[in-house]
Simulated scan of single mutants.
Amino acid sequence: MHPRPPCRSTHSFPTAGSRLVYDLWTGPGRPVLLVHALLFDRTQWWPLAADLAATCTVVAPDLPGHGETPMPAGLSPSQVAGDLARLVDGLGLRRAPVVVGHATSAPLAVAFADRFAVHGMLVADEPAGVVEHGPDAVVAASGLDLVPEQFRSFAEPRRDPNLVAAYRSWLDRPTSRRPVPHTGGPSGDLSRPRFTPLSDTEGLAARIQYLL
């Protein structure tokens, strides 16, 4: 009989003048930090995290201004990466994480990997270039239209122009063009915007486990 995967729990981590709300699946092995796309929230990772939690510890925060995390004063990728690094360190996991960024959160995943020790970094559905500054354009850059119907409840965007304006510097950044390890199979291309965390959950889980 296989052991049941860890249950999800929700927590709050204090930051300078604010806090980060995050979900945690405490499993065996190396931590995996999942960073959602702009205008979405941590719930987009729930199906994937359930697949991963039997083999690793999964941390899925709400970015500032998203979900249950308040909007602070500083929103540069470097500042948010610092908060996330302190969150991971505060959990006492003692192993460098694998960082996974989705779509428009690519600058954050890259900033984290550039500043802090990581075991691996992966970006799915990264936009090919600068993203237009309207909520609809930001949502479209994630590939929401390709999310299967049964998973739509996990991907409900907040189409807020003020939130887009707060993250404008992220959207103006060129693609990171970081290489993504290839594991073969029909889900090999993560460069196309198709909301991979929900449209190809098993394929993305396999890629993350490859990095562990």
Rank of each mutant, 00 (worst) to 15 (best):
P77S: 11
A96D: 09
L39H: 05
P14V: 08
R30P: 02
G92M: 03
T69F: 00
G120R: 10
M121R: 14
Q79K: 10
T55E: 15
V59F: 05
S12G: 02
P31E: 02
V139K: 09
V80D: 08
M71F: 11
W46E: 15
V80Q: 07
G92V: 01
V59P: 02
W25A: 12
A137F: 12
V138L: 09
A111S: 13
D114S: 07
F116G: 00
L34N: 06
L33E: 01
E126P: 03
L108E: 11
D41A: 13
F13G: 00
C56R: 15
C56I: 10
P127C: 11
L34R: 07
S18N: 13
G29H: 03
G90N: 06
T104A: 15
S78M: 08
A50N: 10
D23L: 03
A109W: 11
R19C: 10
L108W: 08
A103P: 13
L34V: 11
F112T: 05
L75N: 10
F40C: 05
L63E: 01
V98W: 08
A60H: 02
A113K: 06
M121A: 14
P28Q: 09
L34I: 09
G120C: 02
V110L: 15
V99T: 01
A96V: 06
L63G: 04
V130K: 14
T15M: 02
P135K: 09
P31Q: 01
P135N: 11
F112R: 04
A137R: 15
A54H: 12
P64C: 11
V58Y: 01
A124N: 08
P28D: 07
H36Y: 08
A60E: 03
A85L: 01
M121K: 11
V80M: 08
P70N: 02
L91E: 01
G120V: 13
G74H: 13
A140K: 15
V100C: 14
G120N: 08
A111I: 09
L91I: 02
V32G: 03
S105C: 10
G90P: 13
P14I: 05
G101H: 07
A49M: 10
L24P: 00
V123K: 05
G65M: 05
T55Y: 07
T57D: 07
D89P: 01
R115M: 13
P31G: 08
L87N: 04
F13K: 02
D114A: 14
P61N: 07
V139C: 12
E126I: 08
V118G: 07
L93H: 00
